[in-house]
Write a protein that binds this DNA or RNA. Structure first.
Lengths: 184, 184
DNA sequence: AGTGAATTTCTGTGAATACTGAAATTACAG
DNA sequence: CTGTAATTTCAGTATTCACAGAAATTCACT
């Protein structure tokens, strides 16, 4: 933000608008702004970009881009590729939106939900033994545990569905519930 | 963290463990640590707590609790209640885990997804007109737009299902897809 | 209206996080 | 090997965010 735009590559107003928004969205979901912006840029880009270009386009330091790209690769939604006749590393985003979100959700499950489930089990186990923890508290932790077990099992199912199946499922609307015989 | 525990109300080790974990989880999902900790405390508590007690129990400033409670009320998962013979405000968390997450997801949809959809439509609209934005870029934005439309419609469906229906749906496993005739 | 308790608002400070630029390292061509 | 470009690491700086404590306000009761 300190520098002027003289070093920036041309971004159309539309691209700017989306990149800025995606950056803000990132923050709200616990993702670093620059990381999200780079992802937005790569996602929209017809061809892989090198780190230098990304830095110039977004007006951030080269080293910042380097670290952010590592982060994105860690999430599994950006990968390093090579371009003919250019020895520099280039990067491209996963382009299939469904697949992209599946990857991110899988990763968040692994990083956040799974450890939470382990911790909840430990808590319930310990609460069951000690005298200090209220019976009510233990029950709430059980509720929470069961909720995560249920939702992750459910996600485990539908994450395997092809996009077309999800589409058709939505189109069925409330009929789906009746077909499955699981009306309230 | 600066103060010792002399002012803190008794929290069992189990409660401490969960509160600290929930605080860290909060951060990873873009929620302030103290806000998440207060939510954890109220969620586990058998009875409503007043702000003073919360501040002492968690060892944070009274004003911090006040603001955090406002935040939680804004999310719709904590509400103000009154306790007989006590003129102070008391607060309690929603206790039904399914309902609680439904409320949070509804709110995040309203705050984040809906505005994103609006922005995407604007971007696509503008990209369609201008010469600057690549055709490829426009298509990626369309993909993203369609993804959000689809998933929100789908969430709109299942959010209405009673918990029992979701449970049964998970139990059906892959049979559900066959019953619905939406195999790949 | 007046008093004390409860709550909120506000402002300065501290901590955490993000970021830059330089230095170090690595990769590669000749 | 040697030199150059590319990349990463690192240390210092800046920015953002969280928080405490004081001041101001609201509330409840009289």
């Amino acid at each position: 933000m300190t520098e002027t735009e003289e070093t920036m590559k041309a971004l159309s107003p539309v691209q700017q608008k989306f990149i800025l928004h995606w950056g803000e969205m990132g923050i709200r979901w616990g993702i670093n702004r620059t990381v999200a912006q780079i992802h937005a840029l790569l996602f929209m880009s017809p061809k892989p970009l090198n780190a230098e270009t990304i830095a110039e386009t977004l007006g951030v330091a080269r080293s910042n881009v380097s670290n952010s790209l590592k982060e994105l690769q860690g999430w599994g939604i950006v990968k390093l590729v090579h371009v003919m006749g250019d020895k520099r590393d280039h990067f491209e985003s996963m382009k299939d939106v469904w697949e992209m979100f599946r990857v991110v959700l899988d990763e968040r499950k692994k990083r956040e939900i799974d450890p939470t489930l382990i911790l909840l089990r430990e808590c319930i186990e310990e609460a069951d033994k000690d005298k200090e923890t209220d019976e009510y508290t233990e029950q709430r932790l059980r509720d929470l545990h069961d909720f995560f077990v249920m939702t992750t099992a459910w996600y485990g199912q539908i994450r395997l569905w092809p996009t077309s199946a999800l589409t058709r499922f939505v189109k069925l609307g409330d009929k789906a519930r009746k077909l499955l015989g699981i009306g309230s």
